[in-house]
Design a protein around this nucleic acid. Sequence first.
DNA 1: CCAGAATGTGAGCTACCGCTCGCTTTCTGT
DNA 2: ACAGAAAGCGAGCGGTAGCTCACATTCTGG
Lengths: 206, 206
Amino acid sequence: MARAPRTTVRKAPTQARAQETVETILAATARVLARDGYDRASTNKVAEAAGVSIGSLYQYFPSKEALVSALIERHMSRMLQVLTDAGAALPLGGTVRQATRQIIAASYAAHRVNPKLHRVLLEQVPRIGTMGSIDTFEERTLTLVEAFLSMHASELRRSNLKLAAKVAVLAVRGTTLYCVLRSPELLYEEEFIDEVTDMIVRYLEA
Amino acid sequence: MARAPRTTVRKAPTQARAQETVETILAATARVLARDGYDRASTNKVAEAAGVSIGSLYQYFPSKEALVSALIERHMSRMLQVLTDAGAALPLGGTVRQATRQIIAASYAAHRVNPKLHRVLLEQVPRIGTMGSIDTFEERTLTLVEAFLSMHASELRRSNLKLAAKVAVLAVRGTTLYCVLRSPELLYEEEFIDEVTDMIVRYLEA
DNA sequence: CCAGAATGTGAGCTACCGCTCGCTTTCTGT
DNA sequence: ACAGAAAGCGAGCGGTAGCTCACATTCTGG
């Protein structure tokens, strides 16, 4: 009588139709999350907002957490892509100031990927199991900066470059966080980025 | 037949016994929040963890939100107190560096009020109606810094002091946030505070 | 064209949620 | 000592949450 514990393997969508459904569901998730907050957002509401049956939702996402998790994952991977691209485009020859500004600008660019969603995720979504993607973003940034600093070690006044990298990254992060939460238009202000760059350069440069 | 809409005025606890009950409930709220996260934390669980009946809980807190809200409010007002005290103790005669260091140290001190709880609130609690207390903390900090900067305007190289104050505050905030979320012991490291101070002073000073 | 796989549906189950209320126990002032 | 106020109790109500499953519909390859 004991029933086998129902493997419940969610299918990866193969047909275009299914891909669209998944997209629609994720978009609706973002909307409902923004409207109702995490704990008032129910999977039924999401399905309804997506114009999709609740069964379809559970065909692709095994739980509410998985659903939100997928949204986060997708968003963070897009941000990471922007950061990585900009990092790869770093010219090797410029001054420390130029390069610093470019790295900071890259971080700002990454935060320009759907800042509204980013804000909702920060404000409404309690830390969930798989928030690893956020850590990945932070670690990647730190790695990038550390590499950059050790390349220009001779031009810098800091001895403990790891510490300097961390402090610099955290300081910039403080500003991007504020932008996302309170003042998204600041993400586009070149002057603001200049100001932040100036602070970091003065901190680092000999 | 229509019943008057039940005023449901929660009594303020007057007896010592009741005060203790309220304390116990708030402490239990923090524990359950840490253990289960916001949406899995139920008022029933909180009551059970507090060793108090669910009825008693609702005698003092009219809703789950109010409960969590009270916890936040209390925590933030304690942090604010620490900040304010330290701000009031600012010596008028010192160097910019000394004063800056003191303000930053004050912010760190404020974050040393129960950083574990602070982390839980940041990570687990989605933004709730009355999160005003957090804004109050930020605004107070900014006001303090702005006042400080305009007092020492002649010794600084910035022309736009409001902007400088904001950037400086956000940068420091980035570091405290990291400490609270990932590395609480850093809140006690004088060297780390020195490093951050150095960054800010170099940014501000002529 | 059609068989079977992929996709989509939604009524409805269980479980637990936030919360109330009639009651008992403890405290306080006189 | 005792009356009334304050504090504490917990079974249980109405509701909704997350999620399943038996079924209908659409797509795809041969």
